[in-house]
């Protein structure tokens, strides 16, 4: 378990003091994949780097598996760091070392005998899908392959925690998917705790159990990904999710402009149940779906539909009530029609 307790990090230069992280407290459970999201400069990377004390917090306590890292001496901290793996946006491999030597590097630091280290290296390269690349050098690898080497290296000391600092931000979309799949696979097999920093909501959606949204060094929203994703509260979260549709153009059919429009959200198995049809039959109201998406948050199916209800006022009210009873989220939306040239 990782406990961040009232973490503050300020940078002082001659002219000004910059607060990168301001009094953040949070707790990451064992085996959880926890996301930190925000725009650049929000302090998410700084907070992540406070976990292994690459950045020493100006104030606050960092506890990993019951040990307060801020209280450790230099040697003890080096020892503790061996159990906290980390991967980076730009991989940070040793250019002068082969793939095998890069992966063996943390083992060498821990003075593991060469033969045992090489056995471990082969096992790790197998795990990340790079068997046969032992003698290659980083310059000969693609970005995705470099990140695989970095992941293997981060896992060499069998860490309990893996920190991912924008691990897929330098990769193309296909490679990003492949690396995220690999991380999920590793998480399933090894059950380690992961903390991921990203500015992409899709990464959170796909990987994380819980997420903290950061802005100006503070956590502005925190919760289960499904909750944050489907019912975003803070303005920054809504912007990250593009809820208010600055780039979205919902084309309204002329008859729907007067009808009340609701955003209906489903989570879990009910996503695939004929809920809307049932409610329509029971209440006599009819509906049309204006827009929507159905997908998955990690392993949980979800649906988010923009539905216009037509019919008697009572019937529509009954339909909304019925949807709520069945466990859907229902929220009225006012849409401004977009003029569309046909």
């Amino acid at each position: 378990m990782i406990v961040l307790d009232h973490i503050t990090k300020t940078y002082k230069s001659r002219h000004q003091t910059v607060t990168a992280v301001q009094d953040v407290s949070l707790r990451v459970e064992d085996g959880e994949i926890f996301g930190l999201i925000g725009y650049s400069g929000a302090g998410k990377s700084t907070l992540l780097r406070c976990i292994n004390l690459l950045e020493r917090p100006t104030a606050g306590r960092v506890e990993v598996d019951g040990t307060d890292l801020t209280q450790l001496g230099r040697r003890e901290l080096q020892q503790a760091r061996k159990k906290i793996g980390m991967i980076f946006q730009h991989f940070h491999l040793l250019n002068s070392a082969s793939v095998a030597d890069n992966v063996a590097f943390p083992l060498r630091l821990a003075r593991v005998p060469r033969r045992a280290a090489m056995d471990k290296v082969h096992e790790l390269l197998e795990l990340v899908g790079l068997r046969g690349f032992e003698k290659h050098y980083p310059a000969q690898l693609s970005g995705g392959q470099k990140q695989r080497v970095a992941i293997a290296r981060a896992l060499a000391n069998d860490p309990d925690v893996l920190l991912c600092d924008e691990a897929t931000s330098a990769l193309d979309p296909d490679t990003t998917q492949a690396i995220l799949d690999l991380l999920l696979d590793i998480h399933r097999r090894l059950g380690l705790t992961m903390v991921m920093v990203t500015h992409e909501m899709s990464v959170i959606q796909r990987m994380c159990d819980r997420v903290a949204v950061m802005e100006h060094g503070k956590v502005v929203e925190l919760g289960r990904v499904a909750d944050v994703f489907l019912q975003p509260q803070h303005e920054v979260t809504r912007r990250l999710l593009n809820v208010d549709g600055r780039h979205r153009r919902t084309v309204l059919p002329s008859h729907a402009t007067s009808a009340p429009v609701f955003e209906v959200t489903f989570v879990g198995d009910m996503t695939y149940a004929p809920v809307l049809a049932e409610v329509a039959r029971e209440t006599g109201a009819s509906f049309s779906i204006l827009e929507g998406s159905i997908g998955a948050l990690k392993d949980v199916p979800y649906g988010k539909l923009l539905v216009a209800w037509q019919g008697e006022e009572d019937a529509v009210a009954a339909a909304v009530a019925a949807l709520r009873t069945k466990g859907c989220g229902v929220e009225e939306r006012r849409l401004t029609p977009v003029a569309v040239e046909v």
Binding site: N52, L54, Q78, R81, I84, M86, F88, R153, L163
Partner: peptide, 12 residues
């Protein structure tokens, strides 16, 4: 970054 990576692995 490479030096930082080594620090994160507990290098002295």
């Amino acid at each position: 970054g490479v030096i930082e990576a080594a620090q994160s692995m507990g290098a002295s």
